[in-house]
Deep mutational scan, measured.
Amino acid sequence: AELMTLTIVKGAQGFGFTIADSPTGQRVKQILDIQGCPGLCEGDLIVEINQQNVQNLSHTEVVDILKDCPIGSETSLIIHRG
């Protein structure tokens, strides 16, 4: 298992991935745009978004944080894999 830092840019259609609740937090459910989120894999656990720890937040709260990220700006994700 490892922590990885990824930088992704939000496009007009969003980030290009969906998230779902899991017992340990929000996991990447589906990658819709592989080019839009390079390095991200289905099943990755989202630990931080732009230096904000999201592991204890609800699904709705994490979705809102992602929605609030401006289109075209870089967003830093720390994910836990494995």
Rank of each mutant, 00 (worst) to 15 (best):
A1D: 03
A1C: 12
A1S: 15
E2K: 07
E2H: 06
E2N: 13
E2F: 06
E2A: 10
E2Q: 08
L3Y: 11
L3R: 12
L3K: 14
L3S: 11
L3N: 14
L3V: 10
L3I: 13
M4D: 12
M4A: 06
T5V: 07
T5W: 03
T5E: 07
T5P: 10
T5A: 07
L6M: 09
L6R: 05
L6Y: 08
L6W: 04
T7G: 04
T7H: 12
I8N: 02
I8D: 00
I8F: 14
V9E: 07
V9L: 05
V9W: 08
K10C: 03
K10N: 06
K10F: 01
G11C: 04
G11V: 14
G11H: 04
G11E: 05
A12T: 11
A12I: 05
A12D: 11
A12V: 13
A12C: 10
A12Q: 10
Q13F: 07
Q13T: 10
Q13E: 13
G14V: 06
G14L: 06
G14M: 07
G14E: 12
F15N: 04
F15V: 12
F15R: 02
G16H: 10
F17M: 06
F17V: 02
T18A: 11
I19R: 00
A20N: 04
A20K: 11
A20I: 15
D21H: 08
D21K: 10
D21W: 06
D21L: 15
S22W: 09
S22L: 09
S22C: 06
S22K: 14
P23K: 13
P23H: 02
P23G: 07
T24Q: 10
G25K: 02
G25M: 03
G25S: 03
Q26K: 14
Q26N: 05
R27W: 09
R27T: 13
R27Q: 14
V28P: 00
V28Q: 00
V28A: 02
V28L: 03
K29R: 10
Q30D: 11
Q30C: 03
Q30L: 15
Q30V: 06
Q30E: 03
Q30F: 15
Q30N: 02
I31D: 02
L32Y: 04
L32M: 14
L32E: 11
D33N: 10
D33F: 07
D33C: 07
I34Q: 11
I34K: 12
I34C: 08
I34W: 06
I34E: 10
Q35H: 15
G36L: 02
G36N: 14
G36S: 04
G36M: 14
C37N: 15
G39V: 01
G39A: 09
L40V: 09
C41M: 10
E42P: 14
E42S: 10
E42D: 04
E42I: 07
G43H: 13
G43T: 05
G43C: 03
D44H: 00
L45V: 03
L45R: 02
V47L: 06
V47Q: 14
V47K: 03
V47I: 04
V47M: 09
E48G: 08
I49G: 00
I49N: 01
I49P: 00
I49R: 00
N50V: 01
N50A: 05
N50R: 08
N50Y: 01
Q51E: 12
Q51W: 07
Q51A: 12
Q51V: 07
Q51L: 08
Q52C: 09
Q52D: 14
Q52L: 08
Q52S: 10
N53Q: 11
V54M: 07
Q55K: 02
Q55C: 06
Q55H: 00
N56K: 10
L57V: 11
S58Y: 03
S58K: 03
S58C: 14
H59R: 12
H59E: 15
H59M: 15
H59W: 08
H59T: 05
T60H: 15
T60I: 14
T60S: 10
T60V: 13
T60L: 12
T60C: 15
E61S: 03
E61F: 01
V62W: 00
V62H: 01
V63W: 11
V63S: 06
D64Q: 09
D64G: 09
D64C: 02
D64W: 10
I65N: 02
I65Y: 10
L66S: 01
L66W: 01
K67A: 08
K67R: 14
K67I: 02
D68C: 06
D68V: 14
D68P: 03
D68A: 05
C69H: 02
C69P: 01
C69E: 07
C69A: 11
P70E: 13
P70W: 07
I71K: 06
I71S: 04
I71H: 03
I71F: 12
I71Y: 15
I71M: 12
I71R: 07
G72Q: 13
G72V: 05
S73W: 09
E74M: 14
E74P: 15
E74D: 15
T75K: 05
T75V: 13
T75L: 10
T75A: 15
S76C: 13
S76A: 11
S76T: 09
L77P: 00
L77T: 05
L77S: 01
L77E: 00
L77I: 15
I78G: 08
I78Q: 03
I79W: 01
I79H: 01
H80P: 01
H80Y: 13
H80L: 05
R81P: 14
R81A: 07
G82C: 06
G82W: 03
G82V: 03
G82R: 12
